[in-house]
Write a protein that binds this DNA or RNA. Structure first.
Lengths: 301, 301
DNA sequence: TGGTATATGTGAGTTTTCCTGACAGGTGAT
DNA sequence: ATCACCTGTCAGGAAAACTCACATATACCA
């Protein structure tokens, strides 16, 4: 059982005074007044029961005991300084690993990546595809983008980026063929709906909030992943339901149309960061992402 | 210019938690509540911008960053602990070096030394003969006995031991020859007075406070040191003036007599210790010396 | 499955520490 | 002597740390 150390702040003050040979300079380095340092030294001498400096008018000289303590404390605080600096520096220079769902990655993030890296050059962004059961696998990440709803699990700082908006999308040719232009949403019931096997409830939720009886929906082909679903829609294989950002570029380029726009779900796009990491870098990223999401919103037709 | 360290108390808490693998045990070792330690860890993680522990419900595990910091902080705090313990231990076991004027040493301290070392066996007392221009040469001493008057110079803790009392002494045979028994102090004017060259004012001061005109005194043989002076008196070479403790044993054994007793001077016997050293050991010594001085006072005739 | 024991996290309020700002004392140079 | 500079000390106020109580989460056990 280690016996109690003297006041660490006092030891720190001593280390600075011993290294610089001056109370005033030490006070300057520690950003305190010389009075504070003087008190620390006195307290330490009393605590150790031995004088550490010989006062000689204008300056100080270490006693033999003081010299031994200087050697030890100099090394000890040097080691601490070095280790802490290293952690901080490496923290600042390490690549920022961002987890991102595959579909968002492919259809939204990658197209914007060049711009992002140009706007935030210091970030050194690394993307890692990652479907998000939240607390899983977020170890080793500096942040993750995901869609979800409160309550958020503890241990994560969650910054909202945008509401998750979803809506039916279809290729322009198919839209024309099905006479969907300027039609009413009820038209969805006239066809088999493409969906993902992992989220079959997407259509029914949309139908409910649009005022369509879910029972009237006819689910058609199921795809293993949202990414495939959207590709199928682009290829004119049917009508899909998709989060807005994932089809924003296709809508803009005319490869897809969203006959009835998009509407909010209960979920939000968020940026999740470990609660204890520096907010600085992730804040910058969150701001950028928030703006980019806002720009991906199609004007409601 | 070293960049600022994180809170040292937080680092200390971290070191204990990392070493013991538990917030609670660390709190126990540091004699604080677990809440305090938990806060320290959080503060440190925020300050360094990186998580140091992975929380897994009931326990903790170090992150890679935490492991590096544990290595550094463990070594650093170990070094500090060792150095401080060493200073304290060596402080407690080192010989206690006591400076003492030669005359007091020879005529008072040495005869009592055996008793002193028996009474305070832990002190490991070393005596160093030393005439006392106070702040000189008291470096390297743990304490010094000396006679002097206020104001005392700064940097020293001064513990009073006894008033300095001085009085004329003479050998019994000479006292008889000069008919000093039951005489009045004015009788000193009838003879040449032994004195020290370093303190010729001793007689005149005594005369003044006794009510004798200093002009009437006849100074006789001068001696280089109080020690010689007293030896001369013992040898019957004349009347000397001496501090009471220095002749206490000679009075008790009958080798000297003090026809008119002793009287206070403005000075005091004191024990001076460096202001910043442990009071513990010097307090014990001071108490012992105070008692011994008190026992050296001859009952006023 | 719910209960218990154990551990950590968090918040309000208080204690303790630390710091500041002003002044005193002492030294060396001009 | 005077000045510039440094250290020491004190009272009062700012900041940090602590405690206590409660919340939360896990493991183990009946």
């Amino acid at each position: 059982m280690p016996r109690p150390l003297p006041s660490l702040n006092a030891l720190h003050a001593f280390e600075a005074v011993a290294r610089l040979g001056s109370v005033s300079q030490a006070a300057n380095e520690l950003h305190v007044t010389h009075g504070a340092v003087s008190r620390h030294i006195r307290a330490l001498e009393e605590e150790l029961g031995t004088p550490l400096f010989q006062r000689q008018g204008r300056g100080l000289a270490l006693t033999p005991a003081g010299q031994r303590l200087r050697d030890a404390s100099g090394a000890a605080f040097g080691q601490l300084r070095e280790a802490c600096d290293l952690l901080r520096v490496e923290q600042a220079h390490a690549p920022f690993v961002l987890g991102c769902p595959v579909s968002l990655l492919a259809r939204w993030m990658i197209p914007r990546l060049e711009r992002l890296m140009a706007d935030l050059p210091d970030l050194d962004l690394h993307l890692r595809p990652q479907e998000a059961p939240f607390d899983e696998a977020l170890g080793g990440l500096d942040a993750a983008v995901l869609a979800g709803e409160a309550p958020w699990p503890g241990g994560w700082r969650v910054q909202p980026l945008a509401n998750e908006r979803v809506g039916p999308v279809v290729s322009p040719s198919l839209a024309k063929e099905l006479h969907l232009v300027r039609s009413r949403p009820q038209a969805v019931t006239r066809q088999a709906l493409l969906h993902t096997v992992s989220r079959p409830q997407a259509w029914t939720r949309w139908a409910q909030s649009t005022g369509i009886a879910p029972a009237k929906l006819q689910l058609g082909q199921g795809y293993p992943h949202l990414y495939h679903l959207i590709e199928a829609a682009v290829a004119g294989r049917g009508m899909a339901i998709a989060p807005e950002p994932l089809v924003a570029d296709d809508l803009a380029s005319g490869r897809l149309v969203a006959p009835w726009g998009f509407q909010d779900t209960a979920a939000q796009w968020v940026l999740a960061t470990p609660a204890r990491a520096t907010a600085e870098r992730s804040n910058a990223l969150a701001t950028w992402l928030k703006n980019a999401f806002a720009r991906s919103v199609a004007p409601t037709p």
